[in-house]
Nucleic acid binder design. Structure first.
Lengths: 207, 207
DNA sequence: ACTTCAACAAACCGCCCGGTCGGTTTAAGT
DNA sequence: ACTTAAACCGACCGGGCGGTTTGTTGAAGT
């Protein structure tokens, strides 16, 4: 179906620039016209493809944001290597991407969550679902590390996951404000320091 | 001057509810009318006391937010005790306050920074100033701890401060989303774990 | 008693946004 | 060549927002 192809292409274009502008300016401060102006399209085109601005956002969350989080933060930590190494590399790459992003506006999931909290239940739930998927995968990676002998058996996997998510979300906000490269470097150093305390304790007498 | 007293009282009331609503709904999604409706005041009263909505916000940042951050996050870590203990207690209290806050909407400084990034230079600068004051005080507390022998001399004070600010900002966002009490508990446990790795290394042979 | 002015009320203005709708173009099917 | 429907255009509407202006009140000063 050629028609269907064009339809999908146009919808995709709209969603991509929509996500960009929502990221840059927030949802409520981005008008539908702003998005359409960027694409040289009209309002008729928009409301032909989407029911409403909110429906548009939901499509973006499911089609683009969820996949983005998965490919950048979840998929890289899958595998059977030491999860602390996997997570370190994953964060390193994610932060490096942020550093090189000319217009870094922080962690978009964090921004959207803050914007919709207490204002739109449906959107908030969807955003939290993405967070939960991230959390679940972190926890299971850590537990796998405990089982495989990479991580101390006594640590709290849920606690570690929460600490990782918190610090990542926070540093992304701070990196967007000032000195992204320096802050990334400092953050990664402290993360490694924290991870060292989670490794299995080798007998000090044996060393 | 009785007049001046009343003037100050009205302005204070406006600022307090203004901060509340900006915290709950964000700045751009809170209309001046919303604030005035809450106080049964008119727009005339508002624009008699303040030049604009932006001027109003700046007054709030200087008069209320900066002091709030100082009293909750900076003043408690001043002193000559072990700064790791001081920071632990400070975070414990700050997070406990958030847990008991019926309408916790995360860390307001984080929310405002995300909302104004790339949109209002003057506001963003003021918000960053508050962050910097926090950072400077964290750094100096840690350095004092290094000097006093509470903290390992080889650690990077700026890195620790950044890591603390990041994780705090992040966990406040996550606590506002779900399971605040459990998340606070888990977070504090991991923070203590991290802090352990920063303590002065006692000779293992001596123990 | 009269003036003065801070303090507030309320109507109003211009702008912008989300959403609608009738009309036009494009292209596939026959 | 004609039909049909998808894809798109752009003027328009209702409502809400930030901000202004004009008018009213009430207490202090003389």
């Amino acid at each position: 179906m050629d028609k269907n192809l064009k339809r999908m292409a146009t919808m995709q274009r709209m969603q991509v620039t929509g996500l960009e502008l929502f990221y840059k300016n927030g949802y409520y401060n981005t008008s539908v016209d702003d998005i359409l102006k960027e694409l040289n399209l009209s309002k008729g085109a928009f409301y032909y493809h989407f029911d409403s601005k909110e429906d548009f956002l939901i499509e973006i969350l499911d089609n683009l944001l969820a996949r983005k989080v998965y490919s950048m933060l979840i998929e890289p930590i899958e595998g059977h290597d030491n999860p602390l190494h996997l997570i370190t590399n994953c964060f390193e790459n994610a932060l490096e991407t942020a550093v090189h992003n000319e217009m870094d506006c922080g962690f978009i999931l964090n921004n959207l969550i803050n914007e919709f909290r207490g204002k739109n239940e449906a959107i908030t739930r969807r955003l939290n679902e993405i967070l939960q998927i991230w959390e679940v995968n972190l926890v299971s990676a850590i537990q796998k590390g405990k089982f495989n002998g990479h991580i101390d058996r006594h640590v709290d996997a849920e606690g570690i996951a929460l600490f990782l998510m918190s610090s990542y979300m926070g540093v992304r906000t701070l990196m967007a404000e000032d000195a992204p490269s320096a802050r990334k470097y400092r953050f990664m150093a402290q993360l490694k320091q924290y991870f060292k305390s989670l490794e299995v304790k080798h007998s000090p007498l044996k060393a």
